[in-house]
Every structure is written in C-alpha cells, then in structure tokens.
Simulated scan of single mutants.
Amino acid sequence: MLTRRRALLAGVGALGAAGVAGLLMPGTGGEAGPPAAPAPGPPARRPLRPSAYRLQPLAGYGPPAAAARTPVRSEPLLRMSGVGRTMVLTFDDGPDPRYTPDILRTLREYDVRAMFFVCGEMAAANRDLLAEMAEDGHVVGNHTWSHPLLTQLGRARIRDEMVRTSEIIEETCGERPLWFRAPYGAWNRAAFQLGAELDMEPLAWTVDTLDWTEPGTRTIVDRVEDGAGPGVVLLAHDAGGDRSQTVWALRDYLPHLLDAGYHITVPRRYQV
C-alpha cells in the first residue's frame, strides 16, 4: 500500500498544486514497523507566530441554520472561522490499532476534540476504535473505502467508495458522516457532486505536516508550530504506514499549542 501511494503521489502532488492555484491547497496522503523513539529536539522553542494563511472560512460559531440541501462546491473548504485562536486537528487513513489508540489517549488527556477521516476498510476491521472516536466526541469523516485516486475512477465507483464508508460509520457511531475528504487531496466534479448528495461537505487542510514521509518527530513538531494560526486546519495521519513519529509529535506540540492560547476544536456544520 505504501509503495502504491508514493507512486500515485508523484503525480498527484502536481495536480493538487496546479488545480486550485492561488486560492486553495489540496495536499497529500502513504507498511508499518515497530514504533520508533522520537528524535531529540532542541531545548529551546521558538514562540508560535500567526499563520500566513488567510483563506476562505469553512464554519463558524453562530446558531445552526434550518436544514437545507448541502451545496455542491467546486473547491474543498480549507479553514474555519470563529472568534479567537481556533485550530482543527485532523487525522487521515485510520483507524489503526497500532497508532490510533495512542492518539486518542493524548487527545483525551488534554480534553481536545479532533476530526478523523477514516477509510471504510480500516473502520470495518476496527469498529471498537471507530466507536471510541465517537464516544470521545471526535468528528468522524468519510475518506472513502479503500483510499483510491478518485480522479481515475468513474462516478459509480466513487459513489460506492463513499456510500460503503458512510454506512460503516453510521452503523458504528449512530449517525452518518457530515464531512468528506478526497484521498491524496485529489478532487473532481463527481466527488463534489456525490459528496453533496450524501450530505457531506468537502474538507481539505491548511497546513500539511507531511508526516507520511517520516521526516522525524522534531520536523513534524516544527511544521505544526510554524503553521499554527487562527482558523488553521492541520493534516496528520494515524494510519497508512509507520505513524510513531506522528504519535510522539502530538504529545509534544499539543500542550504547547494550548499553552500558547490556541483553542483546538472541530467545525460545526451549517450553510455558509
């Protein structure tokens, strides 16, 4: 799976950069070995600075609007709006019993809610972790069944990938997902249309940790802290490869973000 993903990403990286240049930034997604110890970091930290990203809002904090048809968008939502220094943490490709439990424990320790975009085949094999996500108050999103490149699939196959995953989430968590993320950040018209038909909003990200490249715990932490800012949606992974660096990095940067005054939350759905 790792080899296949990296081969696909070589082409998709260019697609994601060029397809929405100047406005939106879709990104990337990646056999696992034993967890590795994090690389030691420097003793001193740089102070967090506001993010340079100033993109379109995806959500806010007003009262929910009356039920309405989910809009068909032409670009994924990238950031959230709201009062103060709010950020969203998102984790893709799981749940994975090797790494997801540690991530859930850390989030629980700091009373933080995050978003998990799950693959249906992983969710079906780990329903206990899927249920734990929902019980802890995290948002569970749809990341397709098998993590394919949607731009190479026909409409019927894309719909099947979405529907099967939504059904697993609903059966396990009690409600259907309201958010969808395309694998590799590769969106097309059919994905936007089918997502809206299934009442799901498309969510991308503002800051990519690139943790799937296994760059080292310190590098992941630095990318998070350098990119931190109001409205930022952070992309990390709890499956798809060796995610031990992601686990250790979360333990490092999460308390620092909270100490710096960031409110880590999840978006609320309503028409925007």
Rank of each mutant, 00 (worst) to 15 (best):
V266S: 01
D238T: 04
G29Q: 11
T206E: 07
L77Y: 12
A204I: 11
C119G: 14
P35A: 15
A21S: 09
L23C: 14
G94C: 00
G60T: 15
R157H: 06
G41H: 01
G240N: 09
G30Y: 06
L203H: 10
G241P: 14
M162T: 11
N188E: 08
R164F: 06
T172Y: 04
V118A: 02
I264S: 05
G195W: 00
L55K: 01
A14C: 09
R105I: 04
T90R: 10
V207Q: 04
T209N: 04
V20H: 11
L77E: 08
A125L: 11
Q193I: 06
A236G: 13
V83K: 15
E175I: 08
L254R: 00
T217Q: 03
V20Y: 13
H147R: 05
G227F: 06
R159M: 03
L2G: 11
E167I: 09
Y53V: 15
A14V: 13
H143G: 09
P42V: 05
D136K: 14
C173N: 05
R176C: 05
A228E: 08
G231F: 10
S74C: 13
G29N: 10
R85N: 12
W212N: 01
L178I: 09
G82L: 02
T3V: 12
T90F: 11
A134N: 03
E167F: 01
Q271P: 03
A236P: 07
H237S: 11
V266Q: 04
A182E: 01
A228M: 02
A39T: 05
R6S: 14
R108N: 11
P50T: 07
A190F: 08
A191G: 10
L24K: 14
C173Y: 03
P40K: 06
E170M: 04
R45D: 15
A236H: 09
T144K: 02
G229A: 07
P47C: 05
P230T: 05
R69Q: 14
D259W: 03
E197L: 07
G82S: 06
I158W: 03
L55C: 13
G30H: 05
L234T: 00
V112H: 03
M80K: 08
R105F: 00
A249C: 06
M133H: 08
W248K: 02
A239P: 05
R127E: 15
Q271R: 13
G16W: 03
W205H: 03
G231D: 14
T151R: 08
E171Q: 14
P97R: 04
L23H: 15
H138R: 02
A59V: 00
N126A: 02
R5E: 15
T70S: 01
L178R: 15
R218Y: 09
T86M: 13
A10E: 08
D199S: 13
R189Y: 11
A190C: 06
D96C: 06
G27S: 13
L149K: 02
A36D: 12
G16F: 00
P101W: 04
L48F: 04
F192P: 04
H147I: 00
R157W: 03
L235E: 07
S74W: 07
Y61L: 15
V88K: 00
A191F: 03
V88E: 06
R181A: 11
S244Q: 06
G227T: 07
M122T: 07
T106Y: 00
G120L: 00
G229H: 04
L153I: 02
L178P: 05
G13L: 09
D208E: 04
V88L: 02
P47T: 01
L153E: 10
G261D: 08
